[in-house]
Design a protein around this nucleic acid. Structure first.
Lengths: 159, 159, 159, 159
DNA sequence: TTTT
DNA sequence: TTTT
């Protein structure tokens, strides 16, 4: 078997308010867009855009405390998905980011009000809304494999 | 201006022979596919697939010494591209990996014949072919901005 | 609270055979040295040396399958320790690497016999010995905090 | 030759004001301490401390705009050094961090006034002082190997 | 679909 | 489009 590694670290800003949903088993999953400025040369205004998924407590913290425009630092892995386009029938695929660690930037000091993706649950940021009415969230069953099963908000949103 | 960071590290195997092309200015650019095994739980045979771009000397070294199946370790950044689909006219986008450092794995010892993406240019691996007849390579002009201009193989392949 | 991140990725070769010890609770901990070639310019033969700690199953796998000279790819975090020198009484400190993921390089293919830091337990590599008679292993109690308690080899070696 | 990689990413706060010095050739080099909170479990107040070196423009920007306590995000490599202790004559060694990319955190938004380690040189932060009277800076000759030679502030401070 |  |  070959050596394998898959690690990504990104710092940028949310391109939209995070959406929080739940699997049938009540596992929270948060999705948001991330813009990372390239800034390689001074007259380079290019931007890279990514879709980010955060599971469980950290996902809830992002949904509760972060909104469009907020800066975050994330560490995670790249995830490839492929599917068949319902219309054209042709194969499509996509690479997005599964964040395992989200650090809140911005605010006083270094920009960290509630810090490091924890967050109590009270005092959520004004404007943060919990996604509802979900079509097409990127859930991968294998993400559930190695994690202690927990029934938190059973069946709030079918995925 | 916000903090930005974009770093990715992957280890996996080539899914196809690398293709080497040249910009009009003769800058070498190499493309290959990379398969990274997920192996999170023992019965997890999921795989993530990525498209990788390597510029200049390192790109040439990959093209000269690596073929389908070979293991590599790469360090680089994620790059987002978007375009309009010529047929459907709908907007499409893609995230791929620009490798700035390619380490050859496999072989005796740790698997490193000519090592670390250097490699003279002679004695290329049997089976390694230089891409020819190129349509649709992912070239981004900004990649040329901060690099000393060099005319190496002028105009071999139009991109 | 400020944003914090601590991530390190290294590829190099063992500078000595790994030593395996156990805490009083029977938790395995493996230590080895790692040499990483700098190779920045072709006539650069500089090398960076690090001390690496690997806990639990992965530590056992390293001890069972790897010996001096073997190439590995590790992902982990940096750990700072400080103490008072018993002789001079002056304060000393050290930074070493705690590996959370060890990938075996070298061997056929990409150099991976038993792969990715798993390894059964039988058929250990000739020459791999389990450290015994331990003074001065770098154990940090906080490493035990977030990990399910397990009695594996109770009290084999006192630390 | 074996595969080698050396990459580190840290986010934390300066433990002291940065010191800026210059090599005999006038190359700026900045040194500061970095504290990274471990925060693994909620009652974990452990901290890891590192010494960081930043060369050239980025080093100047850090010295001009950052002071003790400020949050930064850095990307770089680990560097090992060894020497003989002048008193005891015994061998000593140390691992520190050479930052190749420093992102300023903190401030409004995400905490980035002058952003990403650029910064003109005017309007330096009150309290930022340029190190003077230097003994024992960690200069490694090989750091100069692959960089275009530049005479910026010739011989301001002997090292 | 796009953030500062 | 997919590697060991």
């Amino acid at each position: 078997m070959a050596a394998s590694m898959n690690r990504v670290i990104l710092a940028g800003n949310l391109t939209r308010d995070p959406e929080l949903r739940f699997t049938n088993d009540g596992v929270p999953v948060c999705n948001f867009g991330l813009a990372v400025n390239r800034r390689r040369s001074k007259d380079d205004d290019a931007v890279d855009f990514f879709d980010v998924t955060v599971w469980r407590e950290q996902g809830e913290a992002v949904a509760n405390y972060k909104t469009k425009g907020d800066p975050v630092l994330i560490e995670g892995r790249l995830q490839y998905r492929s599917w068949e386009d319902r219309d054209s029938g042709q194969k499509r695929s996509k690479v997005d980011v599964v964040a395992e660690n989200v650090q809140f930037l911005g605010g006083r000091g270094d920009g960290n009000g509630s810090s490091g993706g924890s967050g109590a649950g009270s005092g959520t940021k004004a404007g943060a809304r919990h996604g509802r009415g979900g079509d097409d969230v990127d859930l991968n069953e294998e993400d559930f494999d190695d994690i202690p099963f927990r029934h938190r908000q059973p069946r709030l949103t079918a995925l």
